[in-house]
């Protein structure tokens, strides 16, 4: 199969400094001259100055660097959103060089609002599908933290910040992301985990989640652990297991075999694989 080759290496583009890395990468592979790069940076500064002027222009023609730096982060984040929507880094670099910075910014701002709408929709779905968990942090994440983010987020001036600090951690967070991208990723992950839990019988689910251990840990992980014991001991996916089943698993399987069987049983949930890897070691006595 033919694969499209790109000059720029995607791995060299950090989430937190996409535009700057795109320029550096462009210069590295010779797709961009130093002058081109300086012109782009000039355009960014000009855009920043326009934004500052619209915010503070009536009072002053200069602001302390701290204020400018903060707004610059926001501007870079927003422009990067537009660039990241390109099919590949080469196209992103072309877009950066050929499109007026103001247009890129407006495009980024539109994406930002679309992402924000995604978070709003995800939050509503989470509120509707919340599991009967006793973990107070899980409930706060859905009932309070996401809504607080939606109220506080300012795409116009602080797009790069997410002002979202939930105590409840999903099993895998993409920490390199920031702003609304981070929150959308978190909400998507939380919804996937919640939906997995809701596949099980509500009464059994309540029983599992009411245990003292489950009250303090990730809801999804607690459910997945129980279901994993069931798969390994009984050959079925359920939450109805006993301590005997857990002992049987511990004495019968090694971690590698357990992980193999669990991956087969939960093949429809690839987001669970890294957790399964950890659980396999935890549930079995024999190491790899």
């Amino acid at each position: 199969m033919l694969q499209k080759r790109t000059l720029l290496c995607k791995e060299n583009l950090r989430d937190s400094a996409y535009l700057e890395d795109l320029l550096a990468e462009g210069e590295r592979v010779g797709a961009l001259t130093e002058t081109d790069s300086a012109r782009v940076q000039y355009d960014v500064l000009e855009l920043l100055q326009k934004r500052l002027e619209s915010l503070y222009g009536k009072r002053t023609s200069s602001v302390p660097d701290e204020i400018a730096e903060e707004l610059m982060e926001s501007v870079l984040y927003t422009v990067s959103l537009a660039l990241r929507a390109s099919p590949d880094p080469d196209a992103a670099l072309r877009m950066l060089c050929d499109t007026p910075m103001e247009l890129l910014y407006q495009k980024g701002l539109r994406y930002c609002r679309i992402l924000l709408r995604d978070v709003r929709v995800l939050t509503k779905k989470l509120q509707a599908e919340e599991t009967p968990a006793f973990n107070p942090f899980y409930r706060a994440a859905i009932g309070r933290d996401l809504a607080a983010f939606l109220r506080a987020y300012k795409p116009d001036s602080r797009a790069h910040e997410h002002s979202f600090f939930p105590i409840y951690a999903v099993t895998e967070t993409k920490n390199t992301l920031s702003g609304v991208l981070f929150v959308r990723d978190y909400a998507k992950r939380l919804l996937a985990e919640t939906r997995f839990c809701n596949l099980f019988d509500r009464t059994e689910l309540s029983y599992v989640l009411s245990s003292p251990r489950a009250r303090g840990e990730n809801v999804f992980e607690a459910v997945l652990r129980q279901a994993s014991v069931s798969v390994l001991a009984l050959g079925t996916v359920s939450l109805r297991t006993t301590q005997e089943d857990a002992r049987f698993v511990r004495e019968t399987f090694d971690a590698r075999e357990a992980e193999k069987q669990l991956r087969n049983a939960f093949v429809r949930f690839p987001f669970a694989f890294s957790t399964l890897e950890r659980l396999s070691r935890e549930l079995t006595a024999k190491s790899r």
Partner: peptide
Amino acid sequence: EQRYHGRLEFGEGPVGK
């Protein structure tokens, strides 16, 4: 002066004024 006083100019700056 901007660097020294840690400020960023936008618009024309004070020179014109």
